[in-house]
């Protein structure tokens, strides 16, 4: 499904601020995998996502998605089949456009419609309504409301819906619940799992919550210094206690798990 072969990225090369953000990293993701990613501050988790999404081009290595080499494809082309959610709920929606217009944009851009002048039909609007109803936030009755008036949790739920309204080949979740209050975070997480399971979407999720990392999806990666230092499949994850995990991380990374936002319990 997704093959990352020996990618490297150095920021500010040749200066005192030189930083090896990704260091000869390789990863193979199978179709339908839901992988959680944990790691220290500056381990390269978000950099990995940026590399996959094409925010920048990697210095070396190849990225292959569904048998297509996308290493040099610009970000806006990749986002047609890679959905992405950020920590900041304001990043994924247009505040002065209505809920319906935001959904229409996502639907028309990700869908088969290639005609620049295509618009949504009545049946599409009904489909949006049903999809919104599922969020259980009452948004289905407020479709002509500007998105800027919604709460952070509501906006992130809408962003999730926009990213998956046409199921993407790959979904990248960059701590997408970290900026929400606990109630909203839990709700969004539940919705995420529901939607991902329903379409068997291949998904990568960065999290700072260790329990969430170990209990969501079917595989867990731990990163440090731009490398993957620990790769646990479902069987291994289930047997593991948190002290074991810390121990194994130390062995792999050569340092303690250093993350000022890490949550050891849930």
């Amino acid at each position: 499904m997704l093959k990352i072969e020996h990618i490297s990225k150095v920021f500010n090369p040749g200066t005192v601020n030189e930083k090896k953000a990704l260091d000869d990293m390789s990863l193979e993701v199978k179709d339908g995998d839901f992988i959680t990613i944990l790691g220290s501050n500056g381990a390269g988790k978000s950099t990995l996502f940026n590399a996959i999404a094409g925010v920048f081009l990697v210095d070396s290595g190849r990225i292959i998605l569904a048998d297509r080499n996308i290493t040099f494809e610009p970000d806006y082309k990749r986002s047609k089949y890679i959905g992405r959610l950020f920590q900041d709920p304001l990043k994924g929606t247009a505040p002065h456009m209505t809920i319906e217009e935001n959904l229409a944009l996502a639907y028309l851009r990700a869908g088969a419609a290639t005609d620049s002048f295509s618009r949504i039909r009545k049946s599409d609007r009904m489909m949006f309504r049903d999809a919104l109803k599922r969020l259980d936030m009452g948004l289905e009755d407020r479709m002509s409301v500007q998105v800027g008036t919604l709460s952070g949790g509501q906006r992130q739920a809408l962003t999730l819906l926009m990213a998956t309204i046409v199921p993407p080949r790959l979904l990248l979740l960059d701590e997408h619940t970290a900026a929400l209050d606990p109630g909203a975070a839990e709700k969004i997480m539940k919705l995420t799992e529901e939607i991902v399971n329903e379409h068997h979407t291949t998904c990568l999720m960065i999290t700072h919550n260790i329990m969430q990392g170990l209990h969501t999806g079917n595989r867990t990666l731990m990163m440090a210094d731009g490398r993957i230092v620990l790769d646990l499949d479902q069987e291994e994850r289930q047997k593991l206690t948190i002290p074991d995990l810390m121990q194994r991380f130390r062995q792999g990374a050569g340092s303690e798990l250093d993350d000022d936002r890490i949550l050891l319990s849930d």
Binding site: K77, K91, G92, A94
Partner: peptide, 9 residues
Amino acid sequence: NREMVSASS
């Protein structure tokens, strides 16, 4: 929203 643009293809 310039930030959502490239992530929206």
